[in-house]
Design a protein around this nucleic acid. Sequence first.
DNA 1: CTTGGAGTGTCAACAAGGCTGACGTATTAT
DNA 2: ATAATACGTCAGCCTTGTTGACACTCCAAG
Lengths: 164, 164
Amino acid sequence: MREGLGGESLLFLTDEQLRQGIEAMFFAYRGFTADPDRILSDLSYGRAHHRAVHFINRAPGTTVNNLLAILGVTKQSLNRVLRTLIEDGLVESRVGTEDRRERHLHLTDAGRALEARLSDAQRARMRAAYRDAGPEAVAGFKQVLEAMMDADMRRAYGKLREKG
Amino acid sequence: MREGLGGESLLFLTDEQLRQGIEAMFFAYRGFTADPDRILSDLSYGRAHHRAVHFINRAPGTTVNNLLAILGVTKQSLNRVLRTLIEDGLVESRVGTEDRRERHLHLTDAGRALEARLSDAQRARMRAAYRDAGPEAVAGFKQVLEAMMDADMRRAYGKLREKG
DNA sequence: CTTGGAGTGTCAACAAGGCTGACGTATTAT
DNA sequence: ATAATACGTCAGCCTTGTTGACACTCCAAG
């Protein structure tokens, strides 16, 4: 099996290398969420609100069930977040026309404004990291992350990429 | 500024590319924590316990303050986790010899066993992802993650790498 | 037209794991 | 002596996750 790779070095698969990757993920994820978290705490929102707003912006008109699957939480959990966002006028819930049981979610202008604010903060850090690392590193970064996802999340991710 | 990079393509810095990276981080982090989370929930432990055990294993004899800085939580939060780990005989807290105010943390045999179990699960996924992506991708992956960290976390990460 | 099931919303209760603030107690440093 | 440090702990609050139960609307199949 190792020989099947044509004798190339497999040193990048040592436990120590893997552990470094694990720790890198941990520390990097903290940085990844730090900037939006600061903005959110001023508004007494949390990460769950950010995630909802992000994916509603990404796929306007998405149904609650759809969002549930992407976010991987229970409807009760999502509903609590969604309710505050609707009350605060950031999200609009429209009864479906084809299937009137469904609620289609859209951002209001205020919602889009918040999304942009959060996105900008998060993208600024990503942009700096991407620029520091360069295009080849970025390609590798995405490749590893995609391989790390659960199969169903990889599918969801793929669908979102198509839309982009 | 763009010209300063020698005219190379900067398409990897578009907002759409950045957004894909953001979503990749989100989905990948879920996969990253999924396997240990399953093990932990059977033991009525959480991610916080995993993190503590991981870093105590990584830097045996570390002090509480040290761990606090690495984990980025309050001492009250850490203490709650640490207390259960000590009660359950997974972690040992030894009074410092030089400075007797300090408590030095060590894993017991049982603690090491749990750490290994969690590590193995997490590493298995990382190893699969690394192997799928290949060594060049892994190098890029780490480069981007490191660039994404806060400065102080990058320092902490560097220190841990030296030890490894 | 009735009935089952899907999609949704909501109530209640609970737990993990963050947070702040305050206080106590060794121990060390000044 | 006094101040600062390291740690533990109590109390209380928040977000965000969980289960379980129940009701409502609406679609589709019988």
